[in-house]
Amino acid sequence: MSVYTYKTKGTCAKAIMVELDGRTIKHVAFEGGCNGNLSGISKLVEGMDIDFVISRFAGNTCGPRPTSCPDQLAHALKEAYEAEAKA
């Protein structure tokens, strides 16, 4: 297990750090963004299956933006899992 850092696109948060245990989310931390909301999201998703979280968060938008921090977390989880599978 290692920490994967995803550089976000189009959100206030600048990066998302993800640690997985197979398909289970061990830890999530956001750099920047709305601290209260993002720390709450991090606590909620820890221990959950990535497919469940991706299915719930992918495609969510923030105001006029075509993405959101939860949507970017879905992207981060996909990339982190793919990177771990290649290692």
Rank of each mutant, 00 (worst) to 15 (best):
G47D: 11
F30K: 04
M17P: 00
A83G: 01
R56W: 02
I41K: 05
E84M: 11
G33E: 00
V28L: 09
K7R: 10
C69D: 01
Y81C: 09
S39P: 00
C62Q: 05
M48C: 11
G32V: 03
C62D: 02
R23V: 09
T8Y: 03
G63Q: 10
L77S: 02
S68W: 10
A58S: 13
L20P: 00
G22F: 07
A15L: 00
K7H: 12
I41E: 02
G10Y: 12
K86M: 15
F57G: 07
L77F: 10
C69E: 06
C12A: 10
Y6R: 08
K86H: 12
C62L: 10
K86S: 14
L73R: 05
T5F: 01
V45F: 06
E84K: 14
M48W: 13
F57I: 08
A29R: 14
L73W: 03
K26Q: 12
K14S: 04
E19I: 00
Y4E: 01
E84I: 01
I25S: 09
A83F: 12
C12I: 03
M48V: 04
A74I: 09
K26M: 10
S39W: 01
S2W: 05
I50S: 02
K7T: 13
P64K: 08
I25H: 08
E46G: 06
C34I: 03
G36L: 08
T61C: 15
P70D: 09
P66H: 14
H27S: 15
T61E: 06
F52H: 12
S68Y: 06
N35G: 05
P66F: 11
T61P: 08
D71Y: 09
H27D: 14
S2I: 06
L77E: 06
K7W: 03
E82G: 01
H27G: 08
P66R: 04
L77W: 02
T8F: 06
S2F: 07
S55T: 05
A83M: 07
K9M: 03
D71A: 12
A83P: 05
K9S: 08
F30Q: 01
Y81I: 04
N37P: 05
T11E: 04
M17Y: 12
A85S: 15
A87I: 05
T8P: 01
D21Q: 13
